[in-house]
Amino acid sequence: MAEYLIYFNQQWVGDHTEEWFRSRGPLAMAVVNEIKAAGEYLFAGGLEEEGPVFSADATSGELMFTDGPYVETKEWLGGLTVVDVADEERARMWAGKIAEACGWPQEVRLFGSMPEIETSED
Rank of each mutant, 00 (worst) to 15 (best):
A2D: 02
Y4S: 03
Y4H: 06
L5R: 01
I6A: 00
I6V: 12
F8R: 02
N9K: 08
N9A: 12
Q10P: 07
Q10D: 11
Q11W: 04
Q11Y: 02
Q11P: 10
W12D: 15
W12L: 11
V13N: 08
D15T: 15
E18H: 11
F21E: 01
F21H: 09
F21W: 06
R22H: 11
S23C: 02
S23T: 06
G25T: 12
G25F: 10
P26K: 04
L27G: 07
A28G: 13
M29L: 15
A30T: 08
A30P: 07
V31S: 09
V31F: 06
N33D: 11
K36Y: 02
G39W: 03
G39I: 06
E40D: 11
E40A: 15
Y41F: 10
Y41L: 09
A44R: 02
G45M: 07
G46N: 03
L47G: 13
E50N: 06
P52V: 15
V53S: 14
F54D: 12
F54R: 14
S55L: 07
S55M: 08
S55T: 14
A56L: 14
T59H: 12
T59C: 11
G61E: 03
G61W: 01
G61C: 06
L63R: 07
M64C: 06
F65M: 09
F65D: 13
T66Y: 00
T66M: 03
D67Y: 03
D67E: 14
P69A: 11
V71F: 05
E72F: 10
E72H: 08
T73I: 07
T73E: 13
K74Y: 02
K74W: 00
E75I: 14
W76V: 03
W76D: 00
W76L: 09
L77G: 01
L77H: 05
G78E: 01
G78C: 00
G78N: 03
T81V: 07
V82Q: 08
V82C: 13
V83R: 00
V83W: 00
D84P: 01
D87M: 10
D87K: 10
E88H: 11
E88Q: 15
E89K: 14
R90Q: 13
R90F: 03
A91S: 02
A91F: 03
R92F: 10
R92G: 07
W94I: 06
A95E: 09
G96P: 04
G96S: 06
I98E: 01
I98M: 10
A99K: 05
E100K: 02
A101I: 05
C102S: 12
C102D: 11
G103E: 04
W104D: 02
P105D: 03
P105T: 01
Q106Y: 02
R109E: 01
R109Q: 08
G112V: 15
G112T: 11
S113L: 04
M114I: 04
M114G: 07
P115Q: 09
S120E: 06
S120Y: 11
S120T: 13
E121W: 05
